[in-house]
Design a protein around this nucleic acid. Sequence first.
DNA 1: TCAACTTGCTTAACAGCGTTAACGCCGGGA
DNA 2: TCCCGGCGTTAACGCTGTTAAGCAAGTTGA
Lengths: 203, 203
Amino acid sequence: MSTQKRALARDAIKALIVDAARELFVRDGIEAVTMRAIAKRIGYTPTTIYLHFRDKQALLEELCLRDMGALANAFHRIGRIEDPVDRLRRLGMAYIDFAVDYPSHYRFIFMTQKPAITSALQASPDQNAYLMLFETVKEGIAAGQYRPEFDDAHQLAQLMWGALHGIVALQIVKSDEPWIEWRDVRETARAMCDLSMRGVLRA
Amino acid sequence: MSTQKRALARDAIKALIVDAARELFVRDGIEAVTMRAIAKRIGYTPTTIYLHFRDKQALLEELCLRDMGALANAFHRIGRIEDPVDRLRRLGMAYIDFAVDYPSHYRFIFMTQKPAITSALQASPDQNAYLMLFETVKEGIAAGQYRPEFDDAHQLAQLMWGALHGIVALQIVKSDEPWIEWRDVRETARAMCDLSMRGVLRA
DNA sequence: TCAACTTGCTTAACAGCGTTAACGCCGGGA
DNA sequence: TCCCGGCGTTAACGCTGTTAAGCAAGTTGA
């Protein structure tokens, strides 16, 4: 077999593994994703997976990386919006859409701490997303759109990120607590967008 | 041994177990808390722990329950504040204090989903905390302190809770991501309080 | 053509986890 | 004295992620 064909075969089985992992991931949650379960699903032994991925963490990261296209595309599209304030609001809603559509992915990416030095080299999508958020609020500050006390782009970015993250994170973790009458996430998130924009914008 | 003395001894060893678990919990995080590590620390075998706790989940819940006194006391004290808006702000800051002082506890209570039907009987502290938040915003709504679009006490409670939760949750999980210049949690949280109060209050 | 090497995959195992069945010991009550 | 119940143990089960060693088939070089 030529080296090219071999590379293709490698990519094919890699995709096979990732697809099997994804099915377990989105259907039964991250707890159901075990190396043995993935292997069983594609008719290999668990050892085989290690021929294609360093470890489980790397596999899950690749899985999320592949599925973050949705978020990346939306962010890229929104990035062309001129007004930084409008752009910020749209970024927020796109972020919420991703969290609602891919709760398992969201949980893995934004709600579990990765073991320190992982993929420290290439920029991860969440890193890019934060940078985009940061640039957007920075532009808004430079344009004098926000109240004067919000002069720190990092703090403002972390405020907006945190506000939306809290809404979805709470619901992902506590959605089946019977003593909370949960409201629709999207509506609450929209209200949070309006609320926080009103809180930071110049009167 | 009298039954009374036996009960005391039971309580003593229970406390011993919880204390050992706590040390591991706060020093090395929840991942370091294994039944074997706890047992080793107090010179027993892991099996002994099961004579006093149903399972690991129950042990961790009891541990957190014992340490939530700090939060419960603060909430109780603040509960006496007359003005519901002022009370809401103070509740928020107390909540942040707890999250910053007990990050491991916070992570276990508010950032991991418990296995469904756990301690469904007696009211858990987080349940009480949510109820208190709910009552406070309800009073504020009744007093006409908030903008008319915030007429749903549950949604408003979830908004305020989510806003603060997002701030601390992000930092707990992503504090050692090198590509984020984190601002001080307490300051950011205070800014979030001001911001969201301004966003929801009547002009 | 045949040996040597590479590649893909498996079998078997290791170390650790939460948890439980079975048993030993020991003190108090009948 | 006998027995019984509670405390603690040993040993194990079944699960996890991960790895060392080996096997078989295909490619390559002499």
